[in-house]
Structure formats: structure tokens, C-alpha cells
């Protein structure tokens, strides 16, 4: 396949960036999207140019490092996957592909396609945990039976990989899906219920501080989420927060 790539290039956080166009040949359908970028980078290095910098690590869709807005959608046109799992068979010979960083005030660009998602870290640090010490002297694991459906729901909320696609897809750059997934996981489990109020108030406060937008329930996040995190989590967080704030 031959492709035209329009890629956002930006020297560093302080510099102004812009789109640059590259022609790339020899792309095979079995390649992953990131392997296609590897090929481009190899060509750039051979030509003595600086390769395109992008975030990636596990390349199997679980670490949440890779990002990229591809043709106007986070993680590209396929569903239920991250960019590293996107394969070139989704594209046709002669296609033009626009590749941009995730955009949000709370995700400033560091270089080229790399953004700083530490705002997500701070939301979790504000309360995304259960306050038990790590001594191991906790009670036996089976002393707290948890209904399977609750445990499963907590698990599905917990499968969030923190990639930021929800923010990138949202027209308001809202982080509600991410925050609510964490809140939900803990709120659904008896272990986490104890400090549920404190947690949801603290996490939402931090989320607001980071400069994310508000949720307007467009549902784009759920569709683009590589792990299919459900909007139900946002409703649960709305509920939890309402309950906590009227208390």
C-alpha cells in the first residue's frame, strides 16, 4: 500500500506545531499501525531527519500508553482496540491518514504526538484507592463474599487502561468516563464502600481542577473506549457524588 500521512509535528511543549505531509510506500496489511510508523521512522532516520515521536509500550492493547487521533478518531476507525492493535488492513491503498495528538487542555503536548496525561495520575492520587495498609494482615480473602454480578461489574469498570481516548473523543474534553470507572470499581465493592463518599468528592474536585470539560452525555467516550467502559459508570458516579454532597 502507498499512503499519504499528515502528521502533527511539534518540537517541544513550548514550540508551535503543525501538520507535515509524508508519503509512505511498502505498507503491508498485516502491519499494525505503529509498525507502519516504525517503517516511516526508519525512513526518516535513514534520510537524516528526526523520527516522529509517539507514545507506545506494550503493543498488545493493555498498558494504555499509545494514543493518537487517527483520521479524527482516538485509536483510529476500528472499535474496541488501541492504536497498537489497529491493523493496516483497515486502510486502502492511496488513503490519506491524518495523525494528531490527543487534544485537551489537561493533556498538553510534550513533543510531536506525545501528550502529558499526568492529570489522570493526580485524579487517582486524590482518592482512587482503598485505605488499607499493605501489611498482609488483612482478613482472609474469602471472608467477604461478593455477589458475582457486583464483582464482575467492578472488574469491567477496572479494565480501564487510562489511555485518555475518552477525553480525546469527547467534544468537551471531559474525563468523566475515566474518573467514573475508578469511582465505580471501588463503590461496587464492599471493601471500597466505607470511604466511597470521601473518594468521589476528592476525585471529582481534582478532575475539575485539572481543567477537563463537563460531560454532556454525548456517549462518544463509550464508543471510542478501547475497553468498552460503560456510560453506566458515569451515572453511578453522578449518583455517588450527589449522595455524598447532600450528606
Amino acid at each position: 500500500m502507498n499512503l499519504t500521512l499528515k502528521i502533527w509535528r511539534q518540537k517541544d511543549a513550548a514550540s508551535k506545531g503543525g501538520i507535515q505531509t509524508y508519503q509512505l510506500g511498502g505498507v503491508e496489511p498485516d502491519m499494525s499501525f505503529l509498525e507502519m510508523l516504525d517503517v516511516l521512522n526508519q525512513e526518516l532516520i535513514d534520510k537524516g531527519e528526526e523520527p516522529v515521536v509517539f507514545d507506545h509500550d506494550c503493543r498488545e492493547g493493555i498498558c494504555g500508553t499509545c494514543s493518537l487521533q487517527i483520521n479524527g478518531e482516538p485509536h483510529g476507525p476500528d472499535r474496541g482496540i488501541t492504536t497498537c492493535q489497529l491493523h493496516m488492513r483497515m486502510f486502502k491503498d492511496g488513503d490519506t491518514i491524518t495523525i494528531e495528538p490527543f487534544r485537551a487542555k489537561a493533556f498538553p503536548v510534550i513533543k510531536d504526538l506525545v501528550v502529558d496525561r499526568s492529570s489522570f495520575e493526580r485524579i487517582q492520587q486524590a482518592g482512587g484507592y482503598i485505605s488499607v495498609n499493605t501489611s498482609g494482615n488483612t482478613q482472609d480473602a474469602n471472608s467477604i463474599p461478593i455477589p458475582k454480578d457486583k464483582a464482575d461489574a467492578a472488574f469491567y469498570a477496572a479494565t480501564c487502561i487510562g489511555c485518555g481516548a475518552c477525553v480525546a473523543a469527547c467534544k468537551n474534553a471531559s474525563a468523566m468516563l475515566f474518573t467514573s470507572a475508578k469511582v465505580s470499581q471501588m463503590a461496587l465493592l464492599p471493601q471500597g464502600e466505607v470511604e466511597a463518599d470521601r473518594r468521589v468528592l476528592a476525585m471529582v474536585e481534582q478532575m475539575d481542577k485539572e481543567g477537563f470539560g463537563n460531560c454532556t452525555n454525548t456517549g462518544a467516550c463509550e464508543i471510542e473506549c478501547p475497553k468498552g467502559i460503560s456510560l453506566e459508570n458515569i451515572a453511578r458516579m453522578n449518583r455517588e457524588y450527589l449522595r455524598a454532597s447532600v450528606k
Binding site: 499493605t134 498482609g136 488483612t138 482478613q139 464483582a151 467492578a154 471493601q191
Partner: peptide, 14 residues
Amino acid sequence: IIDQCVAQGVPFAR
């Protein structure tokens, strides 16, 4: 380890 993880809210299969 299992006790610890469950206390932390790790949603193991049940």
C-alpha cells in the same frame, strides 16, 4: 497476597 489484593479492591473472578 490474595488477602491483601482483595482488601485493596482487586476484582478477582468469583
